[in-house]
């Protein structure tokens, strides 16, 4: 996913639930439909919360990367 063009990156490390979802919800509205948002979190809950949020909001998670307690989400605005 390092080749994916990222239009907006949000550093959400250290933030606890519900803030990562709240920030991603705001961030996705700042980009155009078809563009990609990258969100970086350290909250394990985001692994199941982000997919649930994506389904609710009608956006698409293209890829999720995990390593060293950090989670990277590539989210395409489709909704």
């Amino acid at each position: 996913m390092s080749n994916t063009k990222v239009d907006l990156e949000l550093d959400l490390k250290g933030l606890a639930c519900p803030m990562p979802v709240v920030k991603v919800s705001k961030g996705i509205k700042e980009i155009e439909v078809g563009q990609v948002l990258k969100a970086v979190t350290t909250d394990k809950g985001s692994l199941t919360d982000f997919p649930a949020w994506a389904e609710t909001s009608g956006n698409e998670i293209l890829d999720t990367q995990e390593g060293d307690g950090v989670f990277e989400f590539y989210i395409k605005r489709t909704g």
């Binding site: 519900p18 979802v21 919800s25 919360d49 649930a52 949020w53 609710t56 909001s57």
Partner: peptide, 9 residues
Amino acid sequence: VPYMEFVEF
């Protein structure tokens, strides 16, 4: 009612 629904709607 998941909190992400409160965030979105």
